[in-house]
């Protein structure tokens, strides 16, 4: 069952140097109980896609297309409708829990507020449920932590509070944007385990946005790879890692240093610089860095179409467009 369906989403920002398309014609859908990994480097549009979907764009941003969730198009829904969805049916977990928690409000009040507002619970019930949730995300001394201010907690505990808050209303969709990037590796392992448990227990759809291919390999069922605001490849997680189709996906995997790599030779690299969204080349945006570039890639942009590996990829070499 599809929980979120994004159709042809384009996000443009008005800047001093004219309009920039941060996301172009992205279509994605996520099913109940599924974890979709969104991979890409900075500026690839992976965060903006979902900020736009939730109506959280910066004031100079404009989104077009369709974001279907819970029987409505979120892009045309008003602020009131969005507020009834966000924090209730959809939860978001961000990279830095310090900036996403209100610093002058006790953790407990921030948690309880969610239940009072969205579920109409009494203060006492909200408190009891919040403390139960803090225990569920393995926060030691949950009653004491309920009374703490965010700055009194460590980074790992703050991220657990964010996850507790995200789970409170039993959401249908959880969007986790680089949830472990700010954490140390041993704490990251704890938080990833927690997300894994939440996934199994709640059956919510999870969008996991990250630049870390290892995190995606451990959690995602499907992976979408983004480059310069577009999806260049989507597929089953095992297929993407075992048989990547798009040259960019291949390059990303090859240039990532691996802990289990015993050879230690020079890393394969993707040559050149990350794309400048204001000066994208004609044709395929990856063409200046692609090892397989052909004359056609300089003129035409490949569409995202089924490929031989069973996924979708946007490259003339990997799908039917390659045939004359």
């Amino acid at each position: 069952m599809t929980v979120l369906d994004i159709r042809d989403l384009t996000v443009r920002f008005a800047t001093h140097d004219g309009e920039v398309a941060a996301v172009s014609n992205v279509s994605l859908s996520i099913a109940k109980g599924e974890c979709l990994g969104i991979v890409g480097e900075s500026g690839s549009g992976k965060s903006q896609t979902f900020l736009a979907a939730m109506g959280l764009l910066a004031p100079n941003g404009r989104a077009t297309g369709e974001v279907n969730f819970s029987g409505m198009n979120l892009l045309t829904a008003g602020e009131k409708a969005l507020n009834s969805v966000r924090g209730n049916k959809v939860s978001m977990i961000f990279q830095d829990p310090m900036t996403s928690l209100t610093p002058h409000m006790k953790v407990g009040r921030q948690l309880a507020e969610v239940l009072v507002r969205h579920r109409g619970l009494s203060a006492a019930d909200a408190r009891a449920q919040s403390i139960a949730m803090l225990k569920r995300v393995q926060i030691p001394e949950a009653e004491r932590r309920f009374e703490a201010y965010p700055h009194e907690l460590s980074g790992g505990l703050r991220q657990r509070v964010m996850i507790a808050m995200a789970l409170l209303c039993a959401p249908e969709l959880i969007i986790a944007d680089e949830p472990t990037t700010a954490l140390d590796v041993t704490v990251q392992a704890q938080i990833l385990d927690l997300i894994r448990i939440a996934k199994d227990e709640t059956n919510a759809a999870i969008v996991l946005i990250t630049h870390d291919l290892g995190v995606v390999a451990g959690l995602a069922d499907r992976v979408a790879v983004m480059y310069a605001g577009r999806i260049v490849e989507v597929g089953d997680v095992r297929q993407i890692f075992k048989a990547p189709q798009h040259p960019y996906t291949k390059g990303l995997l090859a240039c990532t240093p691996r802990l289990d790599d015993e050879t230690g030779g020079a890393l394969l690299t993707i040559p050149g610089q990350p794309p400048n969204l204001q000066r994208l080349p004609p044709g395929c945006a990856f063409n200046p860095r692609c090892a397989y570039v052909m004359e056609r890639c300089l003129r035409e942009r490949p569409a995202l179409l089924p490929d031989a590996a069973g996924g979708l990829s946007a490259c003339f070499l990997t799908n039917a467009q390659g045939a004359p």
């Binding site: 590796v185 392992a189 995606v216 997680v237 289990d260």
Partner: peptide
């Protein structure tokens, strides 16, 4: 604790 970019191994 370090995630390995390989779904089977990880």
């Amino acid at each position: 604790a370090v995630p390995i970019p390989d779904p089977e191994k990880e």
